[in-house]
Every structure is written in structure tokens, then in C-alpha cells.
């Protein structure tokens, strides 16, 4: 099996499939063994999709001297992955694809003893905005109608999401607080299951990343009501934002590559060069557009500052969340 794979990868390198120029890596440091590419989520979710996409681009263009070995370590809302990174035996060959449990899980579970600010920033691949969706059969077409409906149902309005303390629940909690809404929240184990139950009208609304709802939106099944982005999204120009409604709130899922704590500067530079090349390539830029991700390029210092503010923000959001429920 290994052999087959290698054979095919050899073919991949030799065919002119390259969507990207192969960057010449004439540096002091290069990986000596296969690179542990940890995914903070189970197979099939948004983070997994991105990790496999990135891996494919790297493999197809032969951008690393040793292969990336993706492993899903989604256990405990990413706790498994964070511990794996924290205790990495070989920091120079351990990198990870993140989502926002990168911030929330260490806050929610202090016993893990994970401080993400010790991790090594590699590349910010983009941020994924959140959107409020309803089913077209609900007859709701504006955010105002939605608010009215939720209030009218007095605690019987059912929304689904990926669980308390997860990204969408933070957004829903903010919305409920800002508008005094009483929502019945049903937790699911993944964004796909949530979208399916909205399509089947088992639940009445969701807050999802556009990528997870896109298929149903294009088929006219889902209606987007409100975006939690800073500005209107190019793919959904008619959907107002929370900011336009007068609340200074936006929320994104971080899609970043990070290195284990204690990674050497040489290794970090090597990976930055690789993933920055992936980031700039047509394949990734196309993915950003088609899945409605926003670019948010940052260098190392900016990323560290960003992490600090995100940890602070999440600490506040989560304590607000804990206070309500």
C-alpha cells in the first residue's frame, strides 16, 4: 500500500499538475522524518476538510522533503490534539491545523495545563465567518421577523448547534443576550448533522459556517438572515451583518497552521515558507472564495498579538455564557 502511494506521489511530482510553482528550499533546515500533521477535529468536519486540502496541495507539488502525515485527534473538543502538541517529543516535526477550540478548550479545561501562547505561529490560512440560517418553509426572510418569531414562541423556538462552549453556541448566546431571546438549544456532534436537521425541519434555525450550509443555500432550501462578519460577505451581498444592526460583534473560526511549543526558529521558518506558498497558490485562493473564507494574513508577531486578544475575548464570552446557563 505504501508502495502504491509512493509510486503515485512520484507520478504526481513528475506530471505537470503543479498548480503552484515549486519553491526551491535551499535552507539550513529541512525535515528529517515524516511530519506529524495533527488535525484538531474528527474526520469530515471543516477543519478536517481544510487539512486534507492543504495536504493534497503540498503533496501534489512536492513542497516538503518528508511527507505530511495527517492524524485526526479530535477527542475532547481538541483537548487530545492540544495535549499531543504540548507534550510533542519532536517539536520540529509536529504541526497542527486549528479551529477555535484552540482558544476555548484550554480556557474551559484549565486542568489540561495548555497555554496556547507558547505554541509556534506558522501561517494564518484564513478565518471562517458565521451566518444565521433558517429553512425557507419557515417563511422568515429577515432578521427582524426571526426575532419576532422567537419571542412569539416563548422558549419553544428550537435551534441546533455543535454544543455548549462551541463556536456557534457563543454566537447564539451573544444574540440571545443582546435581544433578550429565549431559545431552546439542541447540541449535535458536528456541523453536518446540524445542517441536515435544519433541512429536515427538525430544528428551526442554526448558526453555521457558510461552507456547511452552502449546498442547501444554493438549492434554495436555506435562507441566510444575518452574518456575524465585520463586513458584508461577497458571496452573500444582501445579508446584513450584526454590526449594521448596531451591535459591535463579529465572530470567526480560525483556520491556522501552528507548530508545537519549543519548535526551533529554523524549523518554524521552513514551515512558514511552505504554508505561505500554499496560501498564495491558486488552489487555496480558489478555496477561500468558493467556501466564503476571509483572508487574514499575519506575520508571527501579529499572530501572537492576535492570539492574546482572542484568548481574552473568549474568556469573556465563555464566562458570559457560563453565567447565563
Amino acid at each position: 500500500m505504501k508502495l502504491t502511494k509512493r509510486l503515485f506521489l512520484g507520478l504526481a511530482a513528475s506530471t505537470a499538475m503543479a498548480a503552484l510553482p515549486v519553491t526551491a528550499m535551499a535552507e539550513d533546515w529541512s525535515p528529517k522524518r515524516p511530519i506529524d500533521f495533527t488535525i484538531m477535529a474528527g474526520p469530515g468536519g471543516g477543519a478536517d476538510q481544510i487539512a486534507r486540502f492543504v495536504q493534497s496541495v503540498v503533496e501534489a507539488n512536492d513542497m516538503t522533503t518528508r511527507p505530511l502525515v495527517p492524524t485526526n485527534r479530535g477527542g475532547g473538543s481538541g483537548a487530545e490534539a492540544l495535549l499531543h502538541m504540548k507534550d510533542a517529543r519532536d517539536a520540529d516535526h509536529t504541526i497542527m491545523v486549528t479551529l477555535n477550540s484552540f482558544y476555548t478548550t484550554p480556557i474551559r479545561q484549565e486542568a489540561l495545563g495548555v497555554d496556547i501562547e507558547t505554541f509556534t505561529p506558522i501561517t494564518m490560512m484564513g478565518v471562517d465567518p458565521f451566518v444565521l440560517w433558517v429553512h425557507k418553509d419557515s417563511g422568515i426572510t429577515t432578521f427582524e421577523q426571526y426575532i419576532e418569531q422567537v419571542r412569539a414562541m416563548d422558549g419553544e423556538f428550537v435551534m441546533g448547534g455543535t454544543g455548549s462552549g462551541q463556536e456557534d453556541s457563543i454566537v447564539i448566546a451573544f444574540m440571545s443576550g443582546a435581544y433578550g431571546l429565549d431559545i431552546k438549544y439542541i447540541p449535535y456532534d458536528g456541523g453536518g448533522a446540524v445542517a441536515k436537521d435544519l433541512a429536515g425541519k427538525q430544528i428551526m434555525a442554526t448558526v453555521n459556517n457558510p461552507a456547511e450550509a452552502k449546498g442547501f443555500y444554493e438549492a434554495g432550501e436555506f435562507v441566510p438572515l444575518l452574518a456575524f462578519s465585520d463586513e458584508r460577505m461577497p458571496a452573500y451581498p444582501d445579508v446584513p451583518t450584526m454590526k449594521e444592526k448596531g451591535h459591535d460583534f463579529s465572530y470567526y473560526n480560525q483556520r491556522a497552521i501552528v507548530g508545537a511549543p519549543g519548535m526551533s526558529d529554523e524549523a518554524a521558518d521552513y514551515y512558514r515558507q511552505v504554508f505561505n506558498a500554499v496560501y498564495e497558490g491558486d488552489a487555496w485562493q480558489g478555496y477561500l472564495t468558493s467556501e466564503s473564507l476571509s483572508p487574514l494574513p499575519m506575520n508571527e508577531a501579529e499572530t501572537r498579538a492576535y492570539w492574546t486578544t482572542q484568548v481574552e475575548n473568549h474568556r469573556e464570552l465563555l464566562s458570559a455564557l457560563g453565567g447565563e446557563s
Binding site: 478536517d48 445542517a195 452552502k214
Partner: peptide, 24 residues
Amino acid sequence: GIPGSPTTAILLGGMVIWGLTPGP
């Protein structure tokens, strides 16, 4: 566009990579 098993979840990821939108 919803996986019925772990394997189809990965296939679904593949379809996104190939630029297809699974769904109705």
C-alpha cells in the same frame, strides 16, 4: 451533502477539494 458514515465524510471532503458542492 451529509455523510452517512465516517468514510463518506472523507469522500465529501474530497468533493469539496475537487471544487464540487455536494448538496441538493
